[in-house]
Computed example of a mutant assay.
Amino acid sequence: MSQVRNIHSALSQISQPWQPHRLVTVNEQEVKAVKLLGEFVWHDHPVDELFFVIAGELAIDMRPAPTAENSAPEETTVHLGPGDMYVVPRGVEHRPRAAQEVSAMLFEPRGVVNTGNAGGALTSAVHELE
């Protein structure tokens, strides 16, 4: 890709929440613009996933995988505001949620499905921006 991309212009093209749109691909990583609203499904990925909030307030609930030492690890929640970023480690079950619309970017390897192995009605292919 040899053109300048603007995140605010990209976000203005997105009308539905939970529909990732590819901004650019860098090596094997995709940078995606997305709007988030409501509660997503619990899911995990076999790779790390970076959330970068542009506007709004995002909560990410997480349930770490049980270990031999801790068969029922405690759920935690990370709260992100504009300009904040957070990496959800691979294998950590998580659920993003937003009481009001959030504009964000996601950074993850090419081919990652937004709902991981959970599937369901919110599963979306990556859309291309114009």
Rank of each mutant, 00 (worst) to 15 (best):
G56L: 03
K32Q: 12
I54P: 05
F51V: 05
F40D: 06
T77C: 08
I60N: 04
V78A: 11
V34L: 04
G38H: 02
M85Q: 13
E57F: 05
T115R: 05
S103I: 07
V112H: 07
T76R: 10
P20S: 10
H43Y: 02
M85C: 14
H21M: 13
S103K: 13
S12H: 13
H21L: 14
H94Q: 09
A68M: 15
V78C: 08
F107S: 03
T77M: 07
F52M: 10
V112G: 06
P46I: 03
S15D: 15
V88G: 12
V102W: 04
V102Y: 01
V102I: 04
V47C: 04
V88I: 10
F52G: 06
H43A: 03
L11H: 14
G116L: 05
V92N: 08
L36Q: 02
A10S: 14
V113Y: 11
S103M: 11
W42H: 06
H45P: 01
R90A: 13
G81D: 04
S71R: 12
A72G: 10
G91W: 12
V24N: 14
V88C: 07
A55S: 12
N70M: 12
W42A: 02
V24S: 13
P46W: 01
T76W: 06
L58I: 03
R95T: 06
V47P: 01
M105F: 03
V112M: 08
V26Y: 10
A99L: 09
A99D: 13
V31Q: 09
P89V: 04
A121P: 11
V113N: 08
V26K: 09
G38P: 06
A99G: 10
Q13H: 15
A98L: 04
L11D: 12
G120L: 07
I54C: 05
M85S: 15
E75H: 08
G38E: 00
L11T: 12
V88P: 10
W42V: 03
G120T: 07
I54L: 06
H79Q: 08
R95A: 10
A99I: 04
P73S: 10
V113K: 10
V78S: 08
R63K: 15
A104C: 04
Y86Q: 05
P46A: 05
I14P: 07
L23G: 09
N27T: 12
N117Y: 12
E93F: 09
P96C: 02
A10H: 11
F40V: 03
I14Q: 11
P64Q: 02
T67I: 09
Q13N: 15
E108W: 01
Q19S: 15
L80W: 13
F107C: 04
R63V: 12
R22W: 11
S15N: 14
H45S: 01
G91Y: 08
L50P: 00
V26H: 13
R63H: 14
V34I: 08
A121H: 14
G38R: 01
G38K: 00
V113I: 13
G111D: 04
G119A: 10
A121M: 11
Q29I: 11
L106G: 02
V34E: 07
A59M: 11
N117I: 14
E39A: 07
D48P: 00
V92L: 07
F52W: 01
D44R: 02
G120C: 06
P46R: 00
P73H: 08
